[in-house]
Amino acid sequence: MKQPTETVDMKAFEERVEAIRKTFPGGRTAILPSLLAAQETFGYVTPESLDVMERVLGIPRGILKEVGSFYHFIDFEFKGRHRVYVCTNLSCLLNGAQALVDALREELGVEEDQVTPDGALSFRTVECIGLCDRAPAALVDEEQLGPLTPEALIQRVRELRKDGQGT
């Protein structure tokens, strides 16, 4: 999706991992920040980004994957240019979270965790995101949204898909 800038991204990413390594010297503390940086730069932890982390951090990819796979918000495969995380824990459930999930399923025509055919996005139900006073709530990429109606969420999703056209 971002071919023209890929080499630039890789160079910038390498510099970022280098900076993370300097911030958290001595050992593995740099792993999680580096994985998150990869995800931020490339949308997910790509094989190429693992090459860079192996080299800069001196930590084999087996360990990087072992650590990363423990956490819900680190992906090792493409999950769309945007991601929608809908909270369905109790306070959101009691405020209509299921209607948000149903609306997304209908609008996108995909099941949870599947990427739409245009590569624009995927959605996932998640545990409490700490927006209980704004239930039902969701994270759209890094945007905290709530209280949401199905209509408002779908509108946001449509905007995101429009943004992605032509890239």
Partner: peptide, 27 residues
Amino acid sequence: LYLFRGAGAYICGEETALLESLEGKRG
């Protein structure tokens, strides 16, 4: 003071799991 970001795991609120996570391990 360093700011460190988790990556999604309820168990990391348990203090020793949090420390594991901070040390770059599974929580």
